[in-house]
Design a protein around this nucleic acid. Structure first.
Length: 291
DNA sequence: CAACTAATAT
DNA sequence: TATATTAGTT
């Protein structure tokens, strides 16, 4: 029974030659909740993901990363009005997505790294706080596990995902004053929008008990099938921050490090990340790049 | 009470 | 196992 677990991921990767061949395409899965909440009937004209830029209808800044969801075995009856009790497809944490997560946590500091803040920093449309919370829980367990195994621990394939992103040293050190590292927190206007939208939605629509999706009308969750990390299909995330935050909500956003506003190239090299994993990659800033 | 975390369920 | 959902705190 050991072959199963160590294989599923690799097989998953390898068995996906290319999305074009495999994917029948346009399975545009908009988050059911979202679709419902916003009365989005059809995928409408899926913003044809024109492979190449040419005239992009969306500014790069708007081209936020979108969460990828797993293809649910449940068939969506064609033309069948979805019951109001639709649930979101399971989120697939790809290495890229996880990296975004780790970066967010790293820059927030483990102390301040809470689901909501992480979610906001990640700026991945479709991502819910619950998504992040669940992942965070697991990630914390992973960190704890790793603390015990400082050296020589051959990493079981179980943590492949987590191993894909280097663990910032601070994570393993329960140093009480760990607020040294938290670099600037590039909160995009997204945060404000989310807050405002959420408030507005709550005040105006006042949904029964449905979690008011904190997305603006522009932020729509598009679903893709798992893109193999090897094929560089995805990883086209965008750093849509750089918008100076206006009013700090509750979360404290401070610019400690001298470095600051640089349109896109805000790379922070954290060579300190020397984990036992033999992780080679260094810590970069948000600009997620496929490995 | 909203959000966090741990526990539990699928 | 991975992620979702619930439950119990703060």
């Amino acid at each position: 029974m050991r072959e199963d677990d160590s294989d599923w991921f690799s097989r998953w990767e390898q068995d996906l030659p290319s999305p074009d061949e495999l994917i029948p395409l346009s399975q545009s899965l908009i988050s059911p909740d979202l679709a419902l909440a916003f009365d989005i009937r059809t995928p409408s004209q899926p913003p044809h993901h024109h492979h190449h830029q040419s005239s992009t209808p969306l500014t790069p800044s708007q081209a936020n990363s979108s969460a990828e969801f797993a293809a649910d075995s449940s068939d969506l009856a064609a033309g069948d009005e979805p019951a109001r009790t639709l649930k979101r497809p399971r989120l697939v944490w790809t290495p890229q997505l996880h990296k975004r997560f780790v970066d967010a946590v790293a820059h927030l500091g483990i102390k301040n790294a809470v689901p909501k803040t992480i979610m906001q920093l990640m700026s991945v449309d479709g991502l819910t706080r619950e998504n992040v919370a669940s992942h965070l829980q697991k990630y914390r367990l992973y960190l704890k596990r790793m603390q015990g195994l400082s050296s020589g621990g051959s990493d079981p394939a179980a943590d492949r995902l987590f191993a894909s992103s280097p663990v910032p040293a601070h994570f393993l050190h329960p140093n009480r004053s760990d607020h040294f590292m938290p670099s600037f927190v590039p909160i995009a206007t997204l945060q404000q929008q989310q807050q405002m939208v959420a408030a507005a939605a709550a005040a105006a629509a006042n949904p029964p008990h449905l979690q008011p999706p904190q997305f603006h009308h522009r932020q729509i969750a598009a679903a893709h099938f798992g893109s193999p990390p090897t094929t560089t299909t995805n990883g086209k995330f965008d750093a849509s921050f750089l918008a100076r935050q206006t009013q700090p909500q509750q979360t404290l956003q401070r610019m400690s490090t001298p470095m600051l506003h640089s349109p896109v190239s805000n790379y922070v090299e954290d060579l300190e990340s020397a984990n036992a994993n033999g992780g080679r990659a260094v810590l970069t800033l948000f600009p997620t790049r496929d490995d």
